[in-house]
Structures are given as structure tokens and as C-alpha cells.
Design a protein around this nucleic acid. Structure first.
Lengths: 278, 278
DNA sequence: CGAAATATAGAATAAATATTCTATAGCTGA
DNA sequence: TCAGCTATAGAATATTTATTCTATATTTCG
């Protein structure tokens, strides 16, 4: 039987997680007055829209007046709609709610013994990998594999910080017997004439973008090669005209960052291409 | 050259899709004044947060005043922020609530698909990082830092799979103004005579150990250099006579492994050495 | 059936949030 | 260096949106 809103309010504090929210919803929804039940039903079916809706929109969806939605929020243990919405925004938003906090802590503990530094970089690496799974553009990845699988030769370019990544890509392609050429700039040769029709280019570069990399991408574009770029933003100068843009964010520690996620993505890409070519 | 916002406004109506939005962002972001560029960069990197943020939050993230965000929205072809947000709210599909779910989902993709492969390598990377913190020999790490901090020049060697790691070490030492030399084997020169008294050598190698690396370590031993090795076992051929042996185990996926933990350890080592030398 | 308790709708208010405006600062090209 | 632009910041304002309040309707139970 339905008791007072006040009572329901007292026995449980606001649910802290989506799971707790649904559990509570299921538990109480059996004995709820008419309008509250409408709210419960609609919200249970559309809980993912709470983060981006207004009270009025939700109310319209549930076919109840806005004030009914307010009462519902209070019954669920929140102080109001905004309180409830905050939980959904934080939980569902891509990226992690406490990301900023973790990052701040990470940077705060800059000083210390070598093993403390290792711990920080390990944590940064974890966060980077986590971010990779969340932001990975599967469509772009598939396109990248297609482009590279069809290519006669795969050209690879990356300078400075990105050079190790490029070198690793070259290593794996070599292991998988995929024709590949690492444009490492030895002797300041840019080897632009090695870019031939039917080939493809993988370019790796992060801000501040190495000039040679940007130029080689432009050259590849002129020569109509397939282009795959790994970079930090879709607005990167490399992205223009690329067939696939793979964005990766590395979490930095102080002024330094390890290319953890970039390497993970690279090796995955190379392996996928290698098996696609067989 | 940058023209007026009004002009930009006129030639294209508000983008109707997220894709069009990103395309336009990429197209105009090259020639944008300072604050507008900050907005573009931040929003490109966090476009998934637009649906659940306020102008003030976005402005804080991009480190610009709120009015700059408004101007940015107009440049992008919207009448204002609300107009832009509406598009993102309509397209909003909540990302997976947590990392674990997302990872499971990626793995569940068709066996052998690119995204499934990424999931595997991410998982392998995480395990490797975890193993690193558990098995790290802090004494050896401290000795390594001491040896390298005292060295006149730091020589770095790594071939094949370990070459990217060596290259990354060289990059960070360079950034930290530590005298370093990467023995990359260009022209088949082994540069053994560059190993001078008072120098130190970092050698990176895993089974099967590259012959050149083993030889350079032996040469360094003869010349009484400080020697730090990063390898897979203490019984590695490199370990004999080294001042510090750092063992790292990488979790492999199939026949392939990414040097995730090795890179994390390397960058930590380099940073620790860099600050010890100051 | 009738009194007490509870739920409801809609208007009134408060708070948050977006948007516009204006003075100033910073460019750009002569 | 200066004139004529464009960009910028921050305050002022308008708008949207959440929340509270109150009169009325509905239910519950003796």
C-alpha cells in the first residue's frame, strides 16, 4: 500500500548509481498512485533520455503535468529534478565522472621516488586505454583497415614523439609480410616519389604537428593515395581529406606522456590489416 | 584569411547532422582567431559532452568566457547555443555506462573484427601495466636512475621489436636536455667507439635477443660503462654484469604483443633520470 | 456514506541559463 | 605609426526551466 511521499523520502537517500535507481524503481513501482505510476513507467522505458531532457519534455512524454514529475523525483529520493538529472548526466556522459579528479591527483603527486613515477605513468596508461575503448570510432577503424588491406604498399610516417609508433607499425607489418615503408627521414630524404598510385599512407602526428608529416600527407593526397591518420583531434591538419581519421587521447603526466593508447591502437590496426590481406 | 562571422554564417545553414558538424569544424578550424580556435579544439575533443553541458561548463572547459562560446556557435551556423545543443540532444545516445561494459561489448563484436582486436590489446595492455607495478624491482630501478644520472652520455640501444622503445627513450632524454645517443644501426655502423669512459648504456631486448644489442652490451662491459638493461628475465644474456636489470613482462595476444609496460617503465625511468640530473 | 488523508493540476515564483550589447583591446594593412 | 577594422570580455538583459504553493479532486477507511 502506498504511504506518504515524506516517508518514502526518509528511508532511502538518493540512489548513487543508475543500478540503484532502477532497483528502487522496480521495488516501489507496484504500489504507486496513478500519475506517479505513469512517470515511473515512462522513465523506466526512457531513462537514457533523462540526461538530455527538461521536466516539461519528460512530463509531456509521460502525459502528466510537470509538477507530477517533480513529485516523482522526490519520491525517488532526490531533492528535485535537477538532482536526479545530475546523476544521469555524470553516469552516462562518455568519459568518467571522476576523470578530472583523478587527473588532478595524478598531476599533484609529481614529486617522488622513481617507483612513484612508475605508478603515475601506469595510472596514466590505464586511463588512456580506458579512454580508447570509450571513444574508439569503429566505423573509422573499419575504413582504415579496408584502405590498408587494399594498398599495394603501406607507407608509414611519424616524427618526433610519434616516431616510435611509426617504427612499431613498420615492425609489425614487416612481421606479417605486408609490404611497408617507414619514412624515417634518414638523410633528410622525404621519399615522396616512393608514394605510388595504389599505395596507402598511415600518418601519425599530434600537436604540435611535425611539418614533414603534414607535408607527406598533402603529397599523398595529391597523388590520390589512401590515407589513414592517427591524431589527437578531428580538427587536426592531417585530417583533411583522409579516408579514415583515428583519434586517440593520451593522458599526460606532467609535461610527459607515453603513447600507450596509440601503440595499442596501432598494433590492433596492423594485425587487423595483416589478417585482412591474407 | 579570417573573414567575418557574418559571412561564415551566411554561406551555410546550420549543420543538420553530427557528421556535417564535424566536417565543417575541420574545414574552418584552420583559420580561426585565438578564442574561436580554443572553442573549436575543446569542442572537437568533447563533442559528446555538448548535449549535457551548459554554456558556462563548456566555456570553462575551453578556458574562454561564455560569450566566446556563443560566438562560436554562431560561426558554426547555429542561431545560438541552444540551437546547437538541440541537435546534439536529439542525436544523443548514451555511451555505455562503464568501461567494463564497453569493453565487453567491443569484444563481443564479430570475432576477428578490428574493434574486437582493439579490445584484446587494450586488455593485454592493462594486464601488462598491472604486472609491472607488481613485479617492479624498486632497488634495481633506483640503481638504474643513479647510474644514468651520473653518466656523461646515455647510449641507448634496441633493435627490432625493442627499437621503438629505444627511440622513445631517446626522444624523452632529448626533451629533457640529457645528452643521449640512439644506436639505431643506420648504415650498419655499430658506433662502438662512441662508448666512452664515464658514459652509460641502456639496452632494451627481449627473446630472441638481437645480436647487435648483446654485442654492444658486451662492448660496454669491456669499456666499463654503467649498464642498465630492460629485458624479460634475469637470466637474459644481457643481464650478466649489468648494474641494474629491469625485468618487464608483456602480456601477449596471439603471436603479438605491444610494448605497453616497457614504454611506461621507460618513460618513468627517463623522467626520473632527467629530474635527478638537474 | 462521510470525514480524514492523500494526490493532483495549474498558477505563481525562484533559479538557472542563454543571449545581447557595449566599451575596450588587438590586429592588419597603408 | 596610425586609421579602420575585427575580436574579446564582462556586464546587463531576456528567456527558459525548475520548483513551490494552494485550491481542488480523489481515494481510503470507519
Amino acid at each position: 500500500m502506498w504511504r506518504s511521499a515524506g516517508l518514502a523520502n526518509l528511508d532511502v537517500k538518493s540512489p548513487m548509481t543508475i543500478e540503484a535507481f532502477h532497483e528502487r524503481l522496480a521495488r516501489i513501482s507496484d504500489d504507486l498512485p496513478r500519475r506517479m505510476r505513469q512517470c515511473a513507467d515512462y522513465i523506466a522505458a526512457h531513462s537514457d533520455r533523462i540526461a538530455v531532457s527538461t521536466v516539461a519534455e519528460l512530463a509531456a512524454g509521460a502525459e502528466v503535468p510537470p509538477s507530477a514529475v517533480m513529485r516523482f523525483c522526490q519520491i525517488m529520493g532526490f531533492t528535485g529534478f535537477s538532482d536526479m538529472q545530475r546523476m544521469f548526466r555524470e553516469a552516462y556522459a562518455p568519459g568518467f565522472p571522476d576523470y578530472a579528479t583523478r587527473l588532478r591527483n595524478l598531476k599533484g603527486s609529481a614529486h617522488g621516488s622513481p617507483s612513484a613515477i612508475v605508478a603515475e605513468f601506469v595510472e596514466a596508461g590505464r586511463l588512456s586505454l580506458e579512454a580508447l575503448t570509450k571513444t574508439l570510432d569503429e566505423g573509422a577503424l573499419q575504413r582504415a583497415v579496408n584502405v590498408l588491406a587494399r594498398a599495394g604498399m603501406v607507407h608509414i610516417v611519424g616524427r618526433r614523439r610519434s616516431f616510435p609508433v611509426a617504427a612499431y607499425l613498420a615492425y609489425i607489418f614487416d612481421k606479417m609480410a605486408v609490404p611497408a615503408m617507414l619514412h624515417d627521414g634518414v638523410g633528410q630524404l622525404d621519399h615522396r616519389h616512393a608514394l605510388r598510385p595504389g599505395d596507402a599512407l598511415i600518418a601519425v602526428s599530434f600537436a604540435p604537428y611535425a611539418e614533414e608529416t603534414v607535408e607527406l600527407v598533402a603529397e599523398a593526397r595529391r597523388r590520390r593515395l589512401g590515407i589513414v591518420v592517427m591524431t589527437d583531434r578531428v580538427t587536426s591538419p592531417l585530417a583533411r581529406g583522409a579516408d579514415a581519421v583515428l583519434t586517440v587521447t593520451e593522458v599526460d603526466f606532467g609535461a610527459f606522456r607515453a603513447p600507450t593508447a596509440t601503440i595499442a591502437l596501432s598494433v590492433s590496426l596492423a594485425v587487423a590489416v595483416g589478417s585482412a590481406r591474407e
